[in-house]
Amino acid sequence: MYVVVQHTFLNPSDAFSRGEKLIKNEEAPHGTTGLQFYPARDGSGATCLWESNSVADVQSYVDDTLGDSSRNLCYEVDAANAFARQPLGIAERPTLVTQ
């Protein structure tokens, strides 16, 4: 299953420092892998996409790793109604239309 995590950083510098472990999938529960990381430009939070066997695995891993530096809302993606553009990634940028 896919799991989204919405982080609200209470201490951004600590969250980013501790979050290196998440980015590297260090000590992640079996079957749990971070796929994408979208930080807010102002450092106030981030949204991440994970693949995992359960929401609880992601929630406990993220909460334990980030501790009091972040509040983390985790939920299962409704895969039947979700979509993504190809190719998915930060390199894909919308074409700006100027008049």
Rank of each mutant, 00 (worst) to 15 (best):
R85M: 13
G67H: 13
A40L: 15
V4T: 15
A28T: 08
A40I: 08
P29S: 06
S13N: 11
Q86F: 10
G19M: 09
K21Y: 01
E51F: 00
E20W: 05
A56P: 04
T65V: 13
N81M: 10
P39I: 10
G45Y: 09
T98F: 00
Q86I: 14
R71I: 07
R93G: 00
G43E: 10
V97L: 04
D64W: 00
P94W: 12
T32D: 01
N11D: 15
V55S: 02
V5Y: 01
N53I: 03
T8F: 03
D68R: 09
P29I: 04
A84N: 05
N53R: 01
P12Y: 14
Y61P: 08
T8R: 14
D14F: 07
D64A: 07
S69L: 10
L96M: 08
R41Q: 06
V5T: 15
T95K: 12
C74I: 03
P29V: 02
T8Y: 07
Y38G: 01
Y75N: 11
T47D: 02
N25C: 09
D57Q: 04
N81K: 15
I23K: 15
E51I: 09
G45K: 03
A46H: 10
N25L: 06
Q86W: 09
Q59R: 11
Q59K: 10
R71E: 12
L49M: 14
R41S: 06
H7C: 13
Q59M: 04
N11K: 13
G43K: 09
F37A: 14
T98L: 03
V62E: 09
R85Q: 10
H30L: 12
P29R: 00
P29T: 05
V62L: 02
V77D: 07
S52N: 05
Y75D: 04
A80T: 09
A82W: 02
G43L: 10
D78E: 13
M1L: 02
T98N: 01
T65S: 06
T8N: 14
T32A: 03
Q99A: 05
V3Y: 02
V77L: 14
A56F: 00
E76M: 08
K21S: 15
I90F: 05
T33F: 00
H30F: 02
L22D: 12
T32M: 01
S70T: 15
T47A: 12
Y2R: 10
D68V: 07
V58T: 12
F9I: 06
D78A: 13
G31L: 01
D78V: 08
T95E: 13
A28I: 04
T47C: 08
G19N: 14
G19L: 10
T95W: 08
T33K: 11
R41L: 04
C48T: 14
I90S: 12
R85W: 07
G34E: 06
F9K: 11
H7Q: 05
R18T: 14
L96V: 09
H30Q: 13
G34L: 14
W50V: 08
S44D: 09
G31V: 05
L96E: 08
S52C: 03
D68A: 14
L49Q: 11
R93E: 12
R71K: 15
Q36V: 13
E51C: 04
I90K: 11
